[in-house]
Design a protein around this nucleic acid. Sequence first.
DNA 1: GTCTATAAATAGATAGAC
DNA 2: GTCTATCTATTTATAGAC
Lengths: 212, 212
Amino acid sequence: MVSAVLKSPSESAPKRSFRQQMHLAREDAIVSAVNRLLAEKGFESMTVDEVAAEVGIAKASLYKHFPSKEDLAAAAMVRVMQRAQAFLDGLDTKRAPLDLLREVARWTMEVQLAGEMPSLPSENSSLRAALTTNKAYVDGLMDVSDRLGAWITAAQASGGLNAALPPIAVLYTLYARACDPVLGFLKGSGQYSNEQIIEMVLSTCFDGLKAR
Amino acid sequence: MVSAVLKSPSESAPKRSFRQQMHLAREDAIVSAVNRLLAEKGFESMTVDEVAAEVGIAKASLYKHFPSKEDLAAAAMVRVMQRAQAFLDGLDTKRAPLDLLREVARWTMEVQLAGEMPSLPSENSSLRAALTTNKAYVDGLMDVSDRLGAWITAAQASGGLNAALPPIAVLYTLYARACDPVLGFLKGSGQYSNEQIIEMVLSTCFDGLKAR
DNA sequence: GTCTATAAATAGATAGAC
DNA sequence: GTCTATCTATTTATAGAC
């Protein structure tokens, strides 16, 4: 059999690995394009034709990699979640919990300003349903939530964070920074740099609008 | 001329007024349906067929009232803006500016929780373009922004509001409360009443996450 | 102005050759 | 796996009778 010959260790193993790498590289390019388009226009406005055009392949080829538009978008959401987990891994957990939470909020805003934060689907979106049944996404979200939750309760116990707020309210408030329209508004005003915008929103988020 | 006869004061004036009232009532029903659907699923996911079904008239009839889907949605946005202006009109301007701003934020959240706040269009939406050329909307937005802006600078001058924040950042932060996903998140958790949700988000907005 | 019926355009998804 | 070409369903918008 030809396939048996090709699978001989001396030549097929590297060759199959090479093909797998190409395959993964292609899929990564697809997911990157989807991620950018999701950030730019959202799930509903993004078309599969646009994705194919951006990647530079035929639309039918996309469907060899991902069975539907929802799976395409879910792959991008999973990758963002993995990026978040990698960012958390890189944090020095010996720092004060409040500082860690601030760094997380800063990171989500940097990603958003870089045009790489997919806008989360509205509650009735078909993407929402696809995500709730996506184990990689749900597991990643739970992992991130657990880690942030621990820092939140620690920061509340040490008096840095307002202990009157339910931890889940704090968690959601931080998540919301990833899709805060204020960043786009301020960017659109053309008066501030990305750094200034992030500092302002961090200030309103942690210190509030009122004078201290 | 027939038209001259029909315009005689004795019979045509009341009849035309009646028809106009019916016309306005119908259009109000249309705009209400559009408003609700925009709040529920956003501009892209809302279909004109749904609107027609919700109003209970044929789709072609809709297009006799509004020339396009964008105009349909713009009418709903204009009406929300008018509701906002009416709310501002009803406020007691002798109160402290900071309290007035808090009342405005509260109102936007109440409207959102009532399912009557159209989610604002993403930056690339065709609705965005339609809104920027809609005089009623742009004028309303400028009026609201001017009034809030005056209260913001007054609150900063009196020391109630953080004077280090540019007024435009404060304004955008307040606007963002109208589409804050945190409300939906907390609502979805099923643990809190609408009043509790609003109080929590008002607290994070004005007092910040950090302990005071 | 309201309706039914249909046009025209677009989007998600697939067939089948290579 | 990639391509071209096509299918099927949906969606915005209109035609034309009443």
